[in-house]
């Protein structure tokens, strides 16, 4: 009978551990600068890309946000970020400042261009403008190449990603403002 006295507590402990395992909870974080405050950071480094005219465009990434000077990008920019290696990730360019209400982006009508990991082209951490699609009235326009951004306008872009079950935003970048210029 001694064997049962030892086995039962072990069984109960294992049961408890097993029951908790699938929840996948992470320690709660708070990053005020990020698009989603309760997420972990997706860093946007300084990088360069070649415009369609062959010019090198400098993107200062997170530094621009910190310094308060928006980047100037071309109308078909290339977006880069440090990959966080999750299957569900989304990048969007908004025509207005991105607003968060109740843990969700509320001004989805201002979403002008989008790319996500379900699309065939582009990859996590490096997306060309042509890899994504325009969004009109909440729908993805997939029948044609995306319309370039309007020169002279200000836009906001950000990247966010979910946990593997897709229930919670685990990662997000700082929302970065930029101006479009053809030069």
């Amino acid at each position: 009978m001694k064997i049962f006295k030892r086995v039962i507590p072990v069984v109960l402990i294992v049961a408890s551990l097993w029951a908790c395992e699938e929840n996948g909870e992470i320690t709660e974080v708070y990053n005020e600068d990020l698009l989603f405050n309760n997420s972990m950071v997706i860093r946007i480094p300084c990088y360069e890309y070649l415009s369609e005219k062959g010019h090198t465009v400098m993107v200062t990434g997170d530094s621009a946000n910190i310094a308060g000077f928006p980047d100037t990008l071309t109308s078909t920019p290339v977006l880069k970020w440090d990959s966080v290696g999750v299957p569900l990730i989304y990048a969007g360019i908004f025509s207005e400042q991105i607003l968060i209400t109740g843990g969700n982006i509320s001004n989805t009508d201002d979403l002008y261009w989008a790319w996500h990991s379900g699309m065939n082209s582009g990859k996590d951490g490096h997306v060309s403008y042509s890899d994504g699609v325009n969004v009109k009235n909440g729908n993805y326009v997939t029948v044609s190449s995306p319309e370039p951004l309007i020169t002279g306008n200000h836009y906001y872009w950000a990247v966010w990603a979910w946990n593997k079950t897709g229930t919670t935003i685990w990662y997000s970048s700082r929302p970065l403002e930029f101006m479009v210029s053809d030069n």
Partner: peptide
């Protein structure tokens, strides 16, 4: 089990 991003795999949540 539910669908996520268009073109991406379905996600599933196991709960006890």
């Amino acid at each position: 089990q539910y669908s996520t991003l268009p073109g991406a795999d379905e996600a599933s949540v196991d709960s006890i």
